[in-house]
Design a protein around this nucleic acid. Structure first.
Lengths: 152, 152
DNA sequence: TACATACATTTGTATATACAATTATTGTAG
DNA sequence: CTACAATAATTGTATATACAAATGTATGTA
């Protein structure tokens, strides 16, 4: 992707602005490819992320706040994401007995099975997207992204 | 931003997956900061982008398809973005006389004035976000992003 | 015990976006 | 010249997201 071709601006943008736009365009592309990759499973990228986090818990429950901390989503919408995953029978939700304000969310057997298929499809998409970026470059890219001042 | 701290996964993710998540998290942060920066002007990042592209036209009109090509937006929504900018008196829309299917969109004087203020605010935000990334790193980052296979 | 406060989640609602269908205009084959 | 396809933009609608307010539960304190 060549950001200059897209911008076609005669007055040159600040390098900072250009970088931000570049990141936006890259995100848009990733987002579209992800939606496409996950379409057969009828889940959104956010629903996929919830499943991936839950599986990372290795049987332990996660409550909503925990999910939320690790996700690109607002609390109120995480509730609704979980609602949708329950409808698909991919996760279970129970009230936490030690603290009834909290809820506990688990991934189900079906959820785990589907997640495995999704992950394979996703990884194929990711490899295709990153096929011209070698390992060394990927490491550099991650290091550079770590330098961004994102409060996280 | 340290993506490993956020993921907290025990089973290590593929470097490709990690990079994609990293980009997603970075985008989310940029998106939030941008919304915040543009709030005083009551425009969205997409509306800002329309204005920036129109200004880059240097008086020449842009039609919707042109705007769309250069933007992170679907055609149908670009129509509505322009609607909102018209309400604010930031742009004007006229039917193209050579081809009445097309419309021509111009930035207004008021639009240009406001865009200048917005750009200053945005640049300050961008510099803050990228304060720990030096020029050389920015160039490297853009080069790496160019390597992504995004069909653009 | 009663009451204020904090915490965890949910609900309501306005706005944003994606996708499909529609309208209006132009181009073109017969 | 008419019919049909192609182009440019708009509209309808379902889903997604952000933000604020509300709900239910727990904790501190007078």
């Amino acid at each position: 992707m060549d950001v200059n071709k897209i911008l076609k601006s005669n007055k040159p943008l600040a390098l900072e602005s250009k970088t931000i736009i570049h990141l936006m365009l890259v995100h848009q592309s990733i987002s579209e490819k992800t939606t496409e990759a996950l379409k057969p499973f009828d889940v959104s990228i956010q629903q996929f992320n919830v499943l991936r986090i839950l599986k990372g818990q290795n049987g332990k429950a996660a409550n909503l706040s925990t999910l939320n901390e690790r996700m690109v989503s607002k609390m109120s919408n995480t509730t609704r994401l979980v609602d949708k995953l329950i409808l698909k029978d991919f996760v279970k939700r129970t009230v936490c007995e030690e603290n009834r304000r909290k809820i506990e969310i688990f991934i189900t057997k079906k959820g785990k099975e589907e997640l495995l298929k999704m992950s394979n499809t996703m990884l194929a998409m990711e490899k295709e997207l990153l096929k011209d970026v070698n390992t060394e470059d990927l490491i550099t890219l991650n290091k550079l992204l770590d330098k961004l001042n994102t409060d996280k």
